[in-house]
């Protein structure tokens, strides 16, 4: 019990230490490099009270959400297709592996050329990011379904659709959820980085715009908001996952 208390005290101290280091850095390096804690808190209050930030958040959320859905659907479809045909899987394997090497964000300028300065480039990037995560997770899940269970279900007279519903679906669930949990914060991150490169609204734009105007307070404020949003999403998903999969021990490292 005492060890637990030590750990808790240590965490609080460390958090205070980080904040103290921040403030000290401000004094040592000046406003341009590190703004004071107070200035960032004040700006946080301004942008939330004034409602400015919610517009940006909505834009980022919309692009990330759209990319998330498209990427998930494509990822599930491809993995199921490859599971149905091992010949197809073998044929396209080297191309899928190679395409994973494409630096997604390097495509942004090209996407701008094609789709213009709107939401599309960010959605494509977010979708591509999500696609690979979901594809790999579901593909691994489909492979992990025990062939003997399927034979067993067949012997008991299960129809193909029943096998999908009663054997495959529960089998891939932990993989799918682990993938989704990994993918949503990634989609958010990808959208934000995409907004660095293109757009005139959104959280990423807010940060990059502040940088270009040498508004350090703005950069810090934006990063604090990104941190809160991404880590918040992460924690929320962790809760959801823990609840929906209470019936089986989940391996946290299954996908990540």
């Amino acid at each position: 019990m005492t060890a637990r208390r030590t750990v808790l005290a240590g965490r609080v101290l460390l958090l205070l230490g980080v904040l103290a280091a921040w403030q000290w850095g401000h004094w040592a390096l000046g406003d341009l490099f590190i703004p004071s804690l107070l200035a960032v808190l004040q700006r946080l209050y301004e942008v939330t009270a004034g409602g400015e930030i919610f517009g940006h958040l909505a834009i980022t959320g919309e692009a990330a959400g759209l990319g998330f859905v498209i990427g998930t659907v494509c990822g599930v479809l491809l993995s199921v297709m490859l599971r149905l045909s091992s010949r197809l899987a073998l044929a396209i394997e080297p191309y899928v592996m190679t395409s994973m090497g494409i630096p997604l964000f390097a495509l942004v300028p090209l996407l701008i050329l094609w789709f213009g300065i709107n939401m599309a480039p960010k959605v494509v990037i977010g979708a591509a990011m999500v696609f690979y995560i979901i594809f790999i997770a579901v593909f691994a899940g489909l492979r992990a379904v025990d062939g003997r269970l399927i034979t067993m279900a067949r012997v008991m007279g299960a129809a193909p659709l029943q096998i999908v519903r009663k054997v495959y679906w529960p089998g891939i669930q932990p993989y799918l959820f682990a993938g989704l949990k990994l993918a949503l914060p990634r989609a958010l991150g990808a959208t934000i980085v995409g907004e660095f490169l293109v757009g005139d609204r959104g959280l990423g734009f807010y940060i990059e715009n502040a940088r270009q105007q040498a508004d350090t307070v703005g950069v810090f404020t934006g990063i604090v908001i990104v941190t809160v949003v991404v880590l918040g999403t992460d924690m929320l998903l962790e809760r959801l996952q823990a609840r929906s999969l209470a019936w089986r021990p989940i391996d946290r490292d299954m996908v990540a």
Binding site: R11, L14, L15, V18, F33, F105, P185, R186, L188, G189, A190, I192, V193, F196, G204, I207, E208, A210, R211, A214, T216, V219, F220, I223, V226, T227, V230, L231, D234
Partner: peptide, 19 residues
């Protein structure tokens, strides 16, 4: 703290590092 750092999109820090 490590978990938080892991979850954070590090690429979002790029503007800060450029600054």
């Amino acid at each position: 703290f490590m978990v938080a750092g892991y979850g954070l999109p590090k690429l979002a820090l790029a503007p800060l590092f450029i600054l």
